[in-house]
Amino acid sequence: MDVTIRVQEADFSLADEYALLAGRPEVGAVVAFVGLVRDVPGRLAGMTLEHYPGMTEKQLGKIVAQAGERWPLSAVTVIHRVGELKLSDQIVLLLTASAHRDAAYAASQFIMDWLKNDAPFWKKETTGEGAAWVEAKDSDAKALARWQQGQ
């Protein structure tokens, strides 16, 4: 399995990254997920993402390796942005490539659920009322629990 992991401030191109995987003869499916900065009904002005350099990439690599043990993946690309982001900016790109769509879909969900819970990223949201660090969400923990229970 070919793995690309990047943590960067610069934006990324879904089309460029997709083209690197879609032309491979063994690939029958590429599932793409792009996470965006979304407004929390009329109150979010932007966000800042911080991470632990070196450790973040290592943890992302472990998550991708676990997915590769569960599903027959040809390639995985994870690009996660850090720094100052505005509404509608791209935050994360995840591409999973496999011979079959079921593996690509499942691996994509698995990687994102683990990333949201285990990757060392910290998010600070800026609103008209100021800035505050975001706590972990129960919904993210529940999404992860299904993989921990063997589903």
Results as ranks from 00 to 15, higher is better:
Q66W: 00
K58E: 14
P41S: 08
P53K: 04
L85P: 06
F33T: 15
V82Y: 05
A45N: 12
V37Q: 13
I79M: 11
I91H: 09
T56V: 04
V40T: 14
V78R: 09
R43C: 00
L60R: 04
L73I: 03
V82H: 11
H80G: 10
P41V: 00
L94M: 14
T56P: 10
P72S: 06
I79D: 12
R38D: 14
L49D: 13
Q90F: 00
H51V: 05
G35C: 04
P53V: 02
D89G: 06
A67D: 14
K58Y: 06
G68N: 08
E50L: 01
E84P: 00
L87G: 09
K86Y: 08
G83W: 03
L49P: 09
V92I: 14
V76R: 07
I91M: 13
E57P: 06
L94A: 13
H80M: 11
R43T: 12
E57H: 02
V76I: 05
P41L: 02
A65D: 11
I79R: 07
L44I: 06
V37S: 11
K86H: 12
L94T: 11
I79N: 10
Q66I: 00
G61K: 05
R70A: 06
G68Y: 02
R81E: 13
Y52S: 12
K58N: 11
K58W: 03
A45I: 04
Q59F: 02
V34A: 12
M55C: 03
G46Q: 09
K62T: 00
M47F: 01
G54T: 03
K86C: 12
L73Q: 10
H51W: 02
R43N: 01
L60W: 04
G83D: 13
L94Y: 12
A45Y: 02
Q66E: 15
E69H: 00
D39F: 01
E69N: 01
L60F: 01
